[in-house]
Design a protein around this nucleic acid. Structure first.
Lengths: 216, 216, 216, 216
DNA sequence: TATGAATGAGGATTCATTCAT
DNA sequence: CATGAATGAATCCTCATTCAT
């Protein structure tokens, strides 16, 4: 089996639309993830997908639409993966823990998806940000909700929780990237590092402890 | 004074090379930050710089080189800003605190620089990553060093410090972005949020406390 | 009944060929008239016709053929309309008069047809000109015949009649276009304007009067 | 001298902008006139002009702009030609006569220009119509003014003059086209035919004579 | 008979880049 | 030192046209 056959689906004729759409999206994710949005050419995507360009345009629209479709699909997968990992009835810390593990598992298994979501979508302005920032925002809200729940259950003011959530999501993204370059570290370990950072760092939300600069 | 005159330096002839280079870099940072690397055109840069394109090529090379030069300059400024804020003789926590404040001050004051560094450079593959990732790496190392010093001084193993540093830098970036959209929050507040997250979260490095999942 | 149903024939299966062809031609005339030959897409025609593209090709051939068929049909209608208006036994002037009235009636009632014939067909080079120019030529010949008959019956030379006929047809076309933008003018009025111009202008054919430049 | 050299200007380097613009417009008129707006490709224009496509875009903008520029230039030439032929102090009939002669002279000498103006521009909807219809409108107004002057100076109502002018312009266009296919007829002859048609046909404006249908 | 699926081929447009002055 | 003039090389996108069912 040649490399080409590995990379390109054997060019099969007359498939139902649904299948072709998936083929195209797969190819697009691969190519966008590899070259970035701008350097990815519709030509290469069509070649990788084993489909002619007109089909891409017919089924998924312009380059922007195609990219948005990629993001939408991958982001949905990610969110579902995380949601699938969390147990709603568990206490807040366990919820966060399972969410983190699901997140890192996703990143580990779907490298290309993650790269498209994090690297590419974040940096493109305009129409994509909306699509993606929506997803990111949902993630942040989720974490935020967790923090608020923890905090209020301890009678602590919640003013900074949104910012905290933002910080944590950023930490997670950054760590995920780092992990991609250090594949030897087991997923559980990375997750536990972040969990510790997060949970301990949120001590002040829980017990009111906080660091304050010593007056100079 | 017209808007144009504000934006474009009056086209003066026969300036020394040094000056021209600064003009060009200023323009490039502005344009890259506004449109992103790919959508920035050399034409616009030359126009904004008030310098003809051949000059740009003569002084700063191809588009990639120019972009790298922008990043190099801005990243250096950022690193210097941070370094300038830190006092070497202070205890680790105060060093981190001052570093954070300097970082947020830079972000607040040099929005365009920050956008180029964070948004643009991160997403471009290839030659820029190297340039930028180098800088980012240096920041991470700095934080790492701090963590290591704290940890070792308490006899705690240091295996995870690099990852921790990565996470913290990510949290900082993410928070900085968030802050750009919430300008009402004072710089000191944002910094203290992150400081608390960081410092408390690092508790385990210092005193061995850590969160562990309850066995299910 | 929705707008779509008004515009598109309900997609019925297994119609006799004749009916399908009419559906297609109707749609084609509509679309060509609206967008012009080049900007009309086979896709839109097939959609408007409520028929799949392969049917169009099977029944009416390539785009050019289809366009030619449109022109042929509409031109035939126009010629028939005019012929139907003329009474062969009437004197030349009354024949012209009735022909003109029939012509303007057609233009007023079949705007789309007229637009396809005049605007689109005229400007497309190549295969259409032939089809259309044939029709136009027939119209011109008709007028020409009338002029010749009038002239010879007065013993006047007929050298310029063809050119005169051409001029008159052009005047009619131009006036018809103008009329489309001035719908308040009654058809009879427009017709009489042109009739007067024509008939009086042909005075020289009839009685030998003519305008000659005064020697300078 | 080869055919190519005849057709394409020898590719000369580094000409001033003005010259290049004229070269490009010349080529564009030629190509548009030959293939029509839609079938004319920017590639062919650039080739005929002996200039690369980017120059065309830099100097004259998009295809639409280029076409509009062609029309504007040619229409201006035509109008100037006619204006140059008319003597303002002459009586109305002589003015019309000289205008007609100038018009036919222009058509005879600038076949390509005429084809672009009449065939192409007329049929393209949208942006061109405006440009051209403006010119055509001016021509019509000119004729109209002449008619009005003649009519009022004879105390005749002027209601239909605009329509008459439209008809006459249409007759002129049509006759000009016909003439292109009958080059043996001398220009003066064609002009006089039209002049007679016009002037005699306008008799009713002047002396109140008119044709009326005999009641049936 | 009728169509959803598929594509070859070509067209407009835009840049980064470089001469020649 | 400085630039107006010029282009090669892509890229996105669309459309008429045709299989295979």
């Amino acid at each position: 089996m040649s490399v080409d056959e590995q990379r390109r689906p054997a060019r099969v004729k007359r498939l139902p639309r649904e299948v072709r759409e998936r083929q195209i999206l797969d190819a697009a994710v691969r190519v966008f993830s590899e070259h970035g949005y701008h350097n990815a050419s519709m030509d290469e995507i069509s070649e990788v997908a084993g489909v002619s360009k007109p089909m891409i345009y017919a089924y998924l629209g312009h380059k922007e639409d195609l990219f948005a479709a990629c993001i939408r699909r991958e982001a949905t997968l990610l969110v579902e993966a995380i949601a699938g990992g969390v147990r709603a009835e568990a206490p807040p810390d366990m919820q966060l823990w399972h969410g983190l593990r699901a997140f890192f598992r996703f990143v580990g298994e779907q490298r290309e998806s993650w790269r498209v979501l994090h690297r590419q979508a974040t940096s493109q302005g305009g129409p994509f940000s909306e699509e993606l920032m929506g997803m990111r925002g949902r993630a942040i809200n989720l974490v935020d909700a967790l923090l608020v729940r923890s905090a209020t259950s301890h009678g602590v003011p919640t003013k900074s929780t949104e910012a905290m959530a933002v910080a944590l999501v950023g930490a997670g993204e950054s760590l995920a990237d780092w992990w991609l370059d250090h594949p030897d570290v087991p997923e559980k370990t990375v997750a536990s590092w972040l969990m510790n950072l997060v949970w301990m760092g949120l001590g002040d939300l829980v017990d009111g402890t906080s660091w304050v600069p010593t007056p100079e």
